[in-house]
Structures are given as structure tokens and as C-alpha cells.
Design a protein around this nucleic acid. Structure first.
Lengths: 165, 165
DNA sequence: GTTGAAAGGTTGACAAA
DNA sequence: TTTGTCAACCTTTCAAC
């Protein structure tokens, strides 16, 4: 509960966070070995990190390419205010949209889309355009992804605070 | 090994993939209950999915907001070809960049950046501009994220193949 | 893929720092 | 309040089928 109002993570909390971001399927005993705690102590710390919302869940990372989704694109979306306010709900039934963010600025929203082929990408884009007449898109095909879902580490947290001044 | 050349997933493989994307810390016995298999059979299927690269890993999902990173921005980057070819390496030591993709199209790259404050975001952007004189940025602040890292499901795979024709 | 047995991990209650 | 210890229970793992 202490975390909810003001998360103050100590060295071991950070070590556990980093270990779980690297491999979420490690057991408590194994984690305890890495941070120098007993398994029950590890379990209790992780339970608190989960309760505080610092850890939002644990996910298997699946590679879309290995499932046949050879195309990866970012779609910049512009649309009327009313449409964009509901963009999350409007793309909910387009499963090729893996990520959807509403933005402040030049573009109204940004989508991360996967597709089986160029023909399939075309079909997905057509479907997005049919959401509303005001919708227009700019599609950028991803050539490579040098960094994806980088971990949040203590080093990064400290560097950020030092930078902020 | 069969998966490497041509991943053909059956119903149970997909069920396991979906279950692990929902909660990667479930045990083999629990997964077995869900898909109607014994624990060793589940372990063997998961081992093959990992070996085939379909499952790339297991990660704890950490909420940057709960760690103080209250700002979430997408940064569109334009730069000279030589610089953008090495963009991954060039932003490797900027830990606030959680994602980095090289793109074909109007923008050369797209970064997902987190920051503690507007002042910190400014500092990060200054650092990105200092990578090379040819670099210019357009920053779009994320207002909300209706969908993040949606799971790849069998339903989606089938819908995509139906759509492709 | 299943079964069964050995090894080891998890989880609770309780004691101690 | 947080961690460690202990014991009961469950899971994982590997062999044989």
C-alpha cells in the first residue's frame, strides 16, 4: 500500500523489476538467489509491486513475423475531433491494429499495424479509411526495429532524474 | 524444428500462445488444465514454440507512469541516410527511448520516448538533436493509449487470412 | 502424449530482527 | 514492519511406456 501513494523502490525492488522484465517466468527461488532474499520475501515484494500497479502484468512476447505477418507498419491518422476521441473503440474490431495511441499535435493518432502481405495491408488501410469520411492516413512501413519495449531500469531512472536537475 | 521452416500451429498451440500473452507466469499444470493436456505435453509444446522463435521471451509489463514518467511521446525523426541507418546504435545510450523503428516514407524513424516532466522531455529532445546536425524531430505527446501490445490470436490470424483472400 | 516418481519450488503460518 | 524458517503441498522434470 505504501507504493500506491508514493512508489519508493529500493535496490532490490529495482533488481526484481529488471529481472522480471528480462524473463517473467523465473521462479521466486531463482529471483531470490539473484537479489539475495528468500523466496517468500521475493514473493511479498512482487505482490506489492503488482498491487501498486508498477507491474501491470506478465506477457509472452510473440513474433508476428514467425506467424506470417511479414509487414509491420506505423499508420499516422488524421480525423475530426469527435472521431478521434473514440478512435480506440473504432479500431477495436480491427485486430491487425496491435497498438493505438491518441496524440496531441500534427497527427490525431498513431497505429501499429501488422499485415500478411501488401494486399492485406491495403485491405486493412481501406478498412481504417471506412471508419469515417474524415479519416485520412499516412502509412510508414517499418524497415527494422532496433529497439522494442526496452526495459525500465534503475540506471535509467537515476539518469533521468540527474538530467531533469 | 518443424516450426522453423513452416510454423503450423494447431488449436492447442494457439490456446497456449493466447494464455501466455495474457499471463506469462502461469505454470505448466495450470496451462494444461486450460487446453486439456498434461503438464509435460504443455512444456514440450512451449519449448518448441520458443525454439521456433514464435515466442521470443517473457516480460513483466512495467507502467512508466507509476515510476514517475508522466510524459509519453512519439518522436518522428528525419535525418540523412547514413545517420538513419545507424539510428539504433545512436539512440542506444538514450535510455528514455523505449522503442526505435526505422521507417520507409516521409519520416526516417519513429521513437517512443518517456519523460519525467516537460523539462526532462526537452532535455531528451535536445540530446536527440545533438546526434547529428541533419537530425530534425517532430514531437507528438501521447494523450491516451487505447490499445498497447494487443495479443496475436488465432481469431486474428484467421480473419487476416480470410481478408487476404 | 501420458503416467508416476524424484527433485525442487511455492505458499502459508509463525518466529525473529 | 519486513524478513527468515519450516512444513505441507503442488509443480516441474525425466524416465518408461
Amino acid at each position: 500500500m505504501a507504493y500506491v501513494s508514493k512508489p519508493e523502490l529500493d535496490t532490490r525492488d529495482w533488481q526484481l523489476l529488471e529481472a522480471l522484465q528480462q524473463d517473467a517466468r523465473q521462479g521466486y527461488a531463482e529471483l531470490g538467489r539473484q537479489v539475495g532474499l528468500s523466496a517468500p520475501a521475493v514473493a511479498e515484494r512482487i505482490r506489492r509491486l503488482e498491487e501498486a500497479g508498477v507491474i501491470a502484468g506478465y506477457r509472452a512476447v510473440v513474433d508476428p513475423k514467425r506467424l506470417g505477418f511479414s509487414i509491420d507498419a506505423m499508420v499516422r491518422l488524421r480525423c475530426d475531433g469527435g472521431v478521434c476521441a473514440r478512435i480506440g473503440a473504432l479500431v477495436a474490431d480491427v485486430p491487425e491494429v496491435l497498438e493505438c495511441r491518441r496524440l496531441a499535435g500534427e497527427d490525431s493518432a498513431l497505429l501499429h499495424v501488422v499485415a500478411l502481405s501488401v494486399a492485406h495491408l491495403e485491405a486493412v488501410l481501406d478498412r481504417l479509411l471506412k471508419i469515417h469520411p474524415s479519416v485520412s492516413t499516412t502509412t510508414l512501413v517499418v524497415l527494422q526495429t532496433p529497439h522494442a519495449n526496452r526495459p525500465l531500469t534503475r540506471a535509467m531512472w537515476q539518469a533521468a532524474h540527474a538530467m531533469e536537475g
